[in-house]
Design a protein around this nucleic acid. Structure first.
Lengths: 167, 167
DNA sequence: ATCATTGCAAAAGATTTGCAAGGTC
DNA sequence: GACCTTGCAAATCTTTTGCAATGAT
């Protein structure tokens, strides 16, 4: 399971790459070119992404730095395990976002342009913890997505913005 | 889109089946045996379910009342449309729950026994609405799942209960 | 009789797996 | 050299679709 990170301001001792290398060493796993390509790429971009979007951004087959699809999936799972990424489901596909060094947050999802907006709420954490406590439930995390229409799409009513290149 | 139902106590004028028949009539759709089998079955059981679990509970191929897999999927989508069911994703599969005549609620999900516990929170709705308002986001709904370990599985520590026959 | 609906078989889309070849420690 | 990883091809799993036959109005 993924450890819980600090909620407000965040302190990061190691870079994501260093942190991942430590994780690999601690598990007797190998530091391969593909894994380096993936950490470096993913942590130089801050958007949410799914496997396809990630692959589209990486070097194509034949190029230097190419990573095959199965390896991308395998490595994403390792990142989640290592606490570098968080994974969630949206419209039937898996979406990933930074976890390591990134504050806890939730999302507003626009059904029109499919954008994900982030927000933070201490109050939500409190509420969640209180509800759990009442039921004697031990919380490890949560996922809240608020669905609706974003400000821009409301403004552009009847002429919604083109689907954004992001889930 | 699904209409929003009352949040606290609920008033239901029509039975789910009647409501669905009305929906069918209003759309010029036909009231078939398969659709009747499905409404009746689903609304005589109150648990969450996915397509496979539902199919497993229905008459097998060859029996009276058999409904094919494609028809199950097609009909579930109609129920969602008609506001009878709500659909969400859990572990990469679609899970359905009653919507019509059922109060708005959210879930605690036990990672051990995979049970879904429900809870209601007006406060969450307020919070959600306030956050949305701040961002000028027009809310149509939300989905919150709190992950962790349920009371029973905590009690049975080291001897978690067998996976429950429910998602 | 008309036209929606069903079941079948097959397709589609996302993700996973077996395995031989290759790379890291 | 031992053994973890990769890429390929193929499998898996869930859900969807084309289409001819069937059934509802």
């Amino acid at each position: 399971m993924v450890e819980e990170f600090s909620l407000g301001s965040v302190e990061v001792a190691l870079s994501p790459r260093e942190r991942f290398e430590e994780y690999l060493r601690s598990r007797g796993m190998r530091n391969t070119e593909q894994r380096r390509v993936l950490v470096d790429h993913i942590f130089s971009h801050h958007e949410h992404f799914d496997a396809d979007q990630l692959i589209a951004q990486l070097p194509p087959k034949g190029s230097q730095g190419y990573v095959s699809r199965p390896t991308v999936y395998r490595t994403l799972a390792e990142f989640v395990d290592a606490g570098l990424l968080r994974k969630f489901e949206l419209n039937g596909r898996s979406v990933y976002e930074h976890d390591y060094g990134y504050p806890q947050h939730d999302h507003l999802y626009c059904n029109q342009c499919h954008k994900l907006l982030e927000f933070q709420s201490e109050e939500l954490i409190d509420l969640r913890n209180r509800v759990a406590m009442e039921q004697q439930f031990r919380v490890t995390g949560h996922r809240l997505i608020v669905y609706g229409t974003c400000r821009e799409c409301i403004a552009a009513r009847r002429r919604p913005k083109r689907r954004v290149d992001q889930i």
